[in-house]
Every structure is written in structure tokens, then in C-alpha cells.
Simulated scan of single mutants.
Amino acid sequence: MQIGVDFGGTKIEAAALDAGGRFLARVRAPNPGDYDQAIRDVVALIGRVEAEVGRCGTVGIGTPGSISPRTGMMRNSNSTYLNGRTFREDLEVALGREARLANDANCMALSEAVDGAAAGARSAFAVIIGTGVGGGLVVDGQIVEGSHGITGEWGHVPLPWMTADEFPGPRCWCGQHGCIETMVSGTGLQASHAGLAGHRLDGAAIVQAVHRGDPVATKALDIYVDRLGRALAMIVNIVDPDLFVLGGGMSNVVELYERLPDVIRRYAFSDQWDGRIVAAQWGDSSGVRGAARLWPR
């Protein structure tokens, strides 16, 4: 039995999978916002899952951010109280057994490559576009983390092929300007629309306005699609994956799947691009499933 823990910004979920990938048990708790309590909550959730199923399992954990290979400490997590802490080791002590940990976008990529939308593909780049932007790369069924553990952090490079009116771009929380995350996240769409309309709407409301024919919302979405397409074309030019798997709130915008390929073709350094862009088959469950899959079946 494989147990996955999806450590999200607002909730923590633990789930057990059988050898065929079927859910045996799922439990959730709010993210407590405190390090010591988070350790206790994760241990308690795993205990609840194992009690419900009646046996113990391997434990994999997906978190925002990653472990520094140099220090062994967490970094780059938007649950900032994890940063600078030996999260995996502290969990292992509390659990009394080994645990495996990976970035949440990497977990999504692994989940979709094993038995989801990317099953059978040699290479897949998973894209999380929600409040922020994350990414994960799987090749031949294996997560590619890189020598510094930051493969897939495409959200923190500058938006490629910036126009004069885009440069230098908004300041990002990471300290740089013009990061992809500031422009192609759901938050980026909201900011672009607010700049045009003079008032703020959430992403769902903007898309609804597009469907009603609102010209300002339509322009904001046009800008967003062009920016996201440029960002994905950069990944094509570096990694050239067989397909992209989209997750996060913006992955529900159906127009993206229709319109992004044409933008990518304009910027891909190739005479053709016929890769695929698909929605995550497992949706919000991809993270916890991928965390469980950090251990082989």
C-alpha cells in the first residue's frame, strides 16, 4: 500500500492507494500554519489512513518548494514556515520510518505519467497554473529534479519575447522582475484585466465575461493566451516534451487547449510543432497520487 500526502497551502490531504492505483482511504485537515503542528497533523492523517485500511504503507509527501541538496533544508515554499527546516527528516523521526518528499508539481507530473493523461509518453512537462506557477518534468517515468533540485521552476525566469510595454515586468516575490509567474498565473490574468478595466475580477468571472462577449475581458484573455504560449514555447525550445499536462485553476479554461498550439508554433525553433496540451486526468487528486507514487509499486 502506498500513502501519499499532498501538503497544500490551505489543506493537507493523505490518501492510500492499492497496487492498481485505486483509493483505499482519503482524509484531510486544514494547513495549521505552524511547523510543529504541521508535523503532528501529517502523522495523525497517516495514522487515520492506516487505521481505516488496516495496514501500514510507504509514505511519500508532495510539498511546495524543494529540499536544498546543499543544506537538506526546505526552500522556496509558499508555506513559508517550512523554509529553513529539515522537514523530511523531522517527519521521519515523528513517523518512525522513512519518507520520500518531492515538489508538488513533480508529484503531479509523476501521477499523470504513471496512469494519467501522460501515460505512455516518453517525456511530459506538467504545468500548474493557479495562484502561482509551477512545473515538473518526467522522462521515461522518472522525475527529473536536476543537480540542484530546481528542474521545472519555469515560473521564475523572465517572460520570453517581452514586448516594450511588458518590460521589465512586475516585481515578483522572489525579488526579480518580469517572472513568468507574475504574468501567466491566475493572479497575472486578474492583474492584466484590472489594468484594462480599472476594476478587479477573479479568474472565473473574467472567463464568464469573455463568454458573454465582453471586449475588455476578451482582450485580457487574448494577452494571457499569448503570454502563456510564449512561456510554453520556451519550454519546447529547451526540453521539447511530448506533451504538456495542465493543472491548477487556469487549466479549466477550455480556450487554452484550442488556442495555445498556434502561439507555440510561432515561437518554437522548429519547422513544425505537433506536441499535445492536455488537462490533468486526475485533477486535484494528481498531487496526492504522485506523492504516493514516489515509492515504486
Rank of each mutant, 00 (worst) to 15 (best):
P32V: 13
L17T: 07
R26S: 13
G20D: 15
G21R: 05
G62E: 00
P69W: 06
N31Q: 15
Y35M: 13
P64L: 07
A44K: 05
L17D: 03
R48C: 01
G60A: 06
A44Y: 00
G60L: 03
D34R: 15
I67R: 06
R22T: 14
E50T: 05
F23W: 06
D41K: 06
R22M: 13
A51P: 00
N76A: 15
P69H: 05
A14G: 08
V42R: 01
A14W: 02
D41W: 04
P30V: 13
M74D: 01
Q37T: 14
P32A: 08
A15M: 14
L45M: 06
A14S: 10
C56R: 09
Q37N: 06
A15Y: 04
P30W: 11
M74Y: 01
D36G: 14
D34Q: 14
T58L: 06
S79F: 12
R75I: 08
S77G: 14
P64W: 02
V42W: 01
V59F: 04
A51W: 01
G54F: 03
A38I: 05
G20L: 13
A14H: 04
P32Y: 09
A15K: 02
G54C: 03
V27M: 07
L24K: 08
S68E: 08
R55S: 07
P69S: 09
I61L: 11
L24F: 04
P30M: 12
F23K: 07
G47Q: 10
V49W: 02
A15F: 01
S79W: 03
V27H: 10
N76K: 11
G72E: 10
A25K: 06
D34T: 14
R70L: 12
R40S: 10
Q37L: 11
R48M: 07
S66K: 00
R70D: 13
G57K: 00
G21L: 12
P69Y: 06
A16C: 10
A25P: 09
M73P: 00
L17Y: 02
E13R: 14
Q37V: 15
G72D: 10
P30Q: 09
N76E: 11
I46W: 01
S77A: 14
P69G: 06
V43D: 03
F23C: 07
T63S: 11
A14Y: 04
R48H: 03
G72L: 12
G54E: 03
D18M: 10
L17W: 03
I39K: 14
S68P: 05
V53D: 00
D41T: 15
R22K: 14
A15P: 09
A44L: 07
S66I: 02
P30Y: 12
A29K: 11
T58K: 05
R48S: 04
R40M: 08
V42A: 10
V49E: 03
R28F: 05
M74F: 05
N76L: 12
G47I: 08
V59M: 04
R40H: 09
R55H: 01
M74C: 10
A16Y: 02
G65Y: 03
